[in-house]
Design a protein around this nucleic acid. Structure first.
Lengths: 226, 226
DNA sequence: GTCTATAGTGCGATAGAC
DNA sequence: GTCTATCGCACTATAGAC
């Protein structure tokens, strides 16, 4: 699979996420007409992610958000109840969406080698489609309150667990030589994260997400070789 | 070399950095007695790094800093001129200090294999000694003004260049098989950064910095094998 | 050299008109 | 459902007493 194949099978993910937000948080959203609400939620969450991936969530003021969305302060507060709510909703709904897609693709292939390759690709491709979300999870998790931080940690460990399981299967089938599965899974994640955390570097060097994915797969497979 | 060997050869690095700050920024520091000034600078910079690695620099108020240092608002402003100054000084002086140590250790060994190993170790060991500084560079660079951001980018690329040079030498001496030197150097950095960015994970799993260093060296060397 | 007091600004949040 | 106006508070920064 290449990035272009992946991309054309994805519908408008922001709308999917926002429709879910509308349904799950109906108590704190005052607007009742679904189509209008979802349209505005898309506007608000896109703006919030754009601004906070530029300057950080703490430094983004609700007045910045008014300017970016074209909505007034009063209108904004019809779509969430506090600024901190916004932080938590992005974290929870975003992670949930991403986890769903990852699992779906990994379950669709059979062999261990294919699972490892597709896990690497989908993680990179998703972060290419929705980079602000990934940057948000990474940068803002440490500023959340304890309860939300625990959820962020759980998400991080869940992604890692996907790789631990794959490596374990590979070892059992004598496909990989892995001394330390946990440490190996631990270092795969940061290599995937580098793609969105230092995107400027890869843009500057004109490296595409497919080139990066191909490189990572061969680099990791070589390190796993028996 | 092990971490304990490295640690005992390091003097009080914060004091070294702060003494340098006192000398280079004498115009914006109103206090003239060096010993007093350095003592207070150590207090201030330690506190600022602690607070901003906890909640982020933007979210750290100068009132927080007063509480943490035990100094008053007025006193603080005798040691720097604006809050943003503090950000820039940490970035510049910290990066300068770290770059100096890295170069020193790499130049002290002769062979390419030793240089690769020592570069990995010293990066990890330094980030173990002064994690708040590394976290600060990583998390706050994107919130700096353009001019300071360029310096942060230059530092990132300089570290990477160290690895590019080592890999290039290794290839010329036919010690390493590297298809793509730039991408290989690119992915080494994030594996080093994971040590301080996800320190909680390694603490929880009781993995020491030496274990992590040993693992990384063997993982990378395996991926470079001919 | 350090303190307290305060000026001036911009923040998150809400009430009430339309 | 969206707007404007405004409240109360916390912020950075400074002036002047000690």
């Amino acid at each position: 699979m290449k990035f272009s194949d992946f991309k054309k099978h994805q519908s408008d993910y922001v709308e999917d996420i926002c429709r879910n937000i509308f349904r799950e948080y109906s108590q704190s959203i005052k607007i009742k007409k679904e189509e209008l609400a979802v349209r505005n939620l898309v506007n608000i969450y896109n703006a919030a992610l754009k601004l906070s991936s530029e300057k950080g969530f703490a430094a983004m003021s609700l007045r910045d958000l008014c300017r970016e969305t074209g909505l007034s302060m009063g209108a904004l507060y019809s779509y969430f109840s506090t600024k901190e709510d916004l932080l938590n909703i992005i974290q929870e709904q975003g992670q949930k969406f991403i986890a769903g897609i990852m699992i779906e693709y990994i379950n669709a292939v059979d062999t261990v080698v294919e699972k490892l390759r597709i896990a690497i690709r989908i993680h990179l491709y998703l972060s290419e489609i929705m980079p602000q979300w990934y940057i948000f999870f990474f940068m803002e998790a440490r500023h959340m309150v304890k309860a939300e931080q625990k959820k962020a940690i759980a998400s991080e460990l869940a992604t890692e667990q996907i790789f631990i399981d794959i490596l374990e299967m590979g070892r059992q089938q004598k496909l990989f030589a892995v001394d330390n599965i946990i440490l190996t899974a631990s270092v795969i994640k940061p290599m995937l994260q580098d793609w969105y955390l230092k995107r400027w570097k890869y843009t500057r060097r004109q490296i595409s997400v497919d080139e990066y994915a191909d490189f990572l797969i061969q680099f990791i497979e070589k390190a796993l070789r028996r």
